[in-house]
Amino acid sequence: MSPVDAHARGSAVLMVSEVAVRFGGVAALRDVSLSVQPATVTGLIGPNGAGKTTLFNVISGLQAPDRGSVHLFDTDVTAMKPHRRARLGLARTFQRLELFGSLTAGENVQVGLESAVKWWEWRHLSRSFPWKRRAARPGDAAPDGDGPSGLGSVAAATSDRLLDGVGLEGLGHQQASAMPTGLARMVELARALAIGPKLLLLDEPGSGLDEAESKALGDLLVKLAAGGMAVLLVEHDMELVMGISDYIYVLDFGDVIASGTPEEIRRDPMVQAAYLGAMPDDPGSEGATVTEGIGAGTGGSPGIEPGGDR
């Protein structure tokens, strides 16, 4: 049974069918199929160069596939421009940070919040008339968002709320380019959340975060999924992925080599060999807790185990 059949019941938020991408002589993706269900966290793991980022680029429209199709919310988006896909409810972050560096953290989020607004409409232009403008300072209560004059304050207030939500309380006025990696990643996440996505693609959100931060990130993603959002997560921090994913796909050399629940993936001998690092003495033995891997802890996660609990 192919992974798609196994997982594609119900109305999938994202359906990737037999997508292939070649760069010159190299096949980055070969007939990859996967699906993502609403209100779940789906992990996407695999060795370096397996094609995870390429798949994200195909889904978000930055890379046209040679073959195959992508369906978002039951719409075929294979030929759709990136910004149109985003308007359908798709948001992503990048492996290497892509912030609007000359804007403040708050404005970064605000650009996301206002992305559906047409700037040339008079009611939005006229917002910057002084007599129409309501003070939009941090801490303001969010007024009703219907009136044209309300939008600015709603956006600013919501932007503050989003930043609070990712732990950046009070940092809205910082210029984004001056922020250290960990905080900047959170701004990027807040900006992605700001467009109100139904599907969120995260490319290694945990890299550059320290342990406390990535723990908090995990909690946040679980809550988002509980609220109905679908999250597709690429991450090398096994603690994080195994801990919060409902379902995991494993990519290797452009192929989906395994998919299943975290438990199943952890035990899969193929995944251990390709990615996690097999147990040196007894590969593939059923149910053995993996404690011999490098840096392995007691949690059964054979990857890197942060936290000095040994």
């Binding site: 060795p47 370096n48 890299s207 090398h236 990615y275 490098i294 840096g295 890197i304």
Partner: peptide
């Protein structure tokens, strides 16, 4: 600086060896 950043677990282990 942050040797393991963005690397798969298997590789990180090898690298630290």
């Amino acid at each position: 600086d942050e040797l393991s950043m963005g690397l798969a677990p298997l590789i990180v282990a090898e690298l630290y060896d």
